[in-house]
């Protein structure tokens, strides 16, 4: 499903002509022209000149996002076969297909910045690049599938909506399409959670247990608080919001929605401080986050190992496609 708005050009008419930093200027002057352009809200296209720092930061950001979409497929994939009704099975395969599609779109955005897709997969499988913390945890019950599709995708979409305004235009365009699809996933996930919450005593216990398990990683997902001024991704307008802004936004929207289902959240400190206008919560375990995203999570090695094996087993197929017909493979 494609958001019709995703087809609108991101660049305004005035911006589509040749930009000052594309002219052959001395490096420092060109750098300043580029910075002025981006800081004034201007967009950058793949073929534009850009400073190395900008190129590397966008690449790192998009590559991690692509890796997360690709690895995010695995926890849910285990449940495609077990989805308990025809409708759930169709919704789940469609959702996972979307995630694979997002990985493909994002790897293409990253490829244009100069790193081949195979090199990105190599780095991912060798543990040289990262993916989101939430995809390093195992899935234990069907309720996990509801909680992931609802709340993990919700936490992601809070961040992704802000990325539709990214200064890097190909990424911004891709995010429009991705956000549109993610909003459908959230509806699917909420429906699974609501059905279980309104079901038998056992089903309700199953969804509460899943929520208790996923809440700490969800609170870690946007990362520790950081200084706005020190964040180069914010400086270059690759992203628009700090970790804490995203987390507060997520809590504001989703805490009431979870509670209205009669479910509870496993943090006694969690409350809205009306005077300060923000949510208070127990300090997330940042040591756990660091450990998990560097490949030491409970399912990190199993997931990476599984993908490595699958990639090896189908290597001959990729070689078949790359070698001209008739040649020995």
């Amino acid at each position: 499903m494609t958001d019709p708005l995703a087809l609108d050009p991101v660049l305004g008419e005035g911006e589509r002509s040749r930009l000052p930093f594309n002219v052959d200027l001395p490096h420092d002057e060109r750098f300043r022209a580029f910075e002025d352009h981006v800081l004034a809200g201007g967009k950058v296209e793949a073929g534009d000149w850009m400073p190395d720092e900008y190129r590397l930061n966008v690449l790192r950001f998009v590559e991690m996002h692509a890796n997360s979409e690709l690895m995010g497929v695995l926890p849910e994939r285990d449940w495609i076969l077990r989805a308990p009704t025809l409708r759930r099975k169709l919704a789940l395969t469609a959702k996972i297909q979307d995630e694979v599609g997002h990985a493909q779109l994002l790897y293409r955005v990253a490829e244009d910045l100069g790193k081949p897709r195979e090199a990105m997969i190599d780095d991912l499988l060798a543990g040289r690049t990262k993916f989101h913390n939430v995809f390093h945890y195992p899935t234990r019950t069907w309720a996990d599938i509801g909680v992931i599709a609802w709340l993990v995708d919700a936490a992601a979409i809070v961040a992704q909506q802000a990325l539709r305004e990214s200064s890097y235009a190909p990424y911004a365009r891709t995010m429009k399409k991705i956000c549109w699809e993610e909003s459908v996933h959230i509806m699917h996930g909420r429906d699974v959670v609501v059905t279980l919450a309104a079901g038998t005593v056992e089903q309700r216990a199953m969804v509460q247990e899943a929520l208790d398990r996923w809440w700490p990683p969800l609170m870690q997902m946007h990362g520790p608080r950081s200084e706005r001024e020190a964040d180069r991704d914010l400086h270059w307008r690759i992203k628009a919001k700090t970790s804490e802004e995203l987390r507060q936004e997520f809590l504001t929207i989703y805490v009431p929605r979870v509670l209205e289902l009669g479910l509870s959240l496993p943090d006694p400190e969690l409350r809205f401080d009306a005077a300060a206008g923000e949510w208070r919560y127990s300090e997330p375990d940042w040591a756990e986050l660091r450990s998990v995203v560097t490949g030491h999570g409970p399912a990190s090695q199993a997931r990476i190992g599984f993908r490595r094996v699958q990639r090896e087993e189908s290597r001959w197929v990729r070689e078949t496609i790359l070698v001209p017909t008739g040649a020995a493979a």
Partner: peptide
């Protein structure tokens, strides 16, 4: 066929295979 979702030989084929399984 849905067993290929997420692990098909390449991403474009993954999307195609998932579509057919659906």
């Amino acid at each position: 066929d849905s067993e290929w979702t997420g692990i098909a030989p390449h991403l474009e084929e993954d999307v195609a295979m998932s579509s057919m399984a659906q």
